[in-house]
Design a binder for these strands. Sequence first.
DNA 1: CTTGCCTGTAATTTATCATATTACAGGCAG
DNA 2: CTGCCTGTAATATGATAAATTACAGGCAAG
Lengths: 146, 146
Amino acid sequence: MQISTKFTIAVHIITCIDYFKDTLPVTSSFLAGSVGVNPVIIRGVMSKLKEAGIIAISQGKSGITLARPLTEITFYDVYKVTDCVNETGLFHMHENPNPNCPVGRNIQMAMVGKLQDIQAVMEQKMQETTIADVAVDIRRKIKQAG
Amino acid sequence: MQISTKFTIAVHIITCIDYFKDTLPVTSSFLAGSVGVNPVIIRGVMSKLKEAGIIAISQGKSGITLARPLTEITFYDVYKVTDCVNETGLFHMHENPNPNCPVGRNIQMAMVGKLQDIQAVMEQKMQETTIADVAVDIRRKIKQAG
DNA sequence: CTTGCCTGTAATTTATCATATTACAGGCAG
DNA sequence: CTGCCTGTAATATGATAAATTACAGGCAAG
């Protein structure tokens, strides 16, 4: 299993909006071309980024803009927005342990807290990484080699 | 997306082997009953646990035993054994960014290290948790309420 | 104020993967 | 030697991700 590409697509989208903001109008079709996926996927992700107050979308020909600076958009924000991991958690527990078995009827209670702790450290690390970190790396690489 | 139930099933299996080791022979059918899944799934997980030197399997009627103490079996060991996350990583990056776009041709390089770091803190936390921690919780709960 | 480009979203298709299930070969212990 | 158990292949089913088609609705440029 893997976390949906919607997460990295969203990071790509945000990075593009920033990178091209003074050059040309950024639209879902343009983004679809850069990301390499269907425009509908882009629109779906964009729509959620808008709801979350990360980007601003105007219809017509104007294009999409950022609603706050890259340094204030964390990986965690994007990860939450794209629903990559649902409310039941990162780990999928087997759902029918036997209640007539002493281990079976207690295993969920015994594991849930530990699994949440593991997920929590991952999410904490995501909060410490921002899209600005990605943008910096990309600009540096472009300066070096194009 | 979620990490496969094989992980929690494996934890359940190991806990059961320990819990019932002096009481009755533990077989794949018995475990399937406790876990609530098909015996073939149990056998597949068991087989990998054996390869990894975590359990010992003898055929015939004898049953399955642990190959090392619970305190030396970490969540990380079990997670690796069950192949819950493949070698391409926890995150699934979109695979066709446009090489003609400056962002598209550099986005993967800019993200991969950051995603690996996030995965690494999660795996580090898994190394710090052992099946013994689960077994302790279960025994305590059983003493309290059954 | 109209027209054209763009977003929003539903519906359908395709591909992939997780899990269940059936079936049977092979092995060990009693 | 015999019966229960493991090992594993093959197939079916179901869920989910992503692609695709289609179209309604809105804004902005002119």
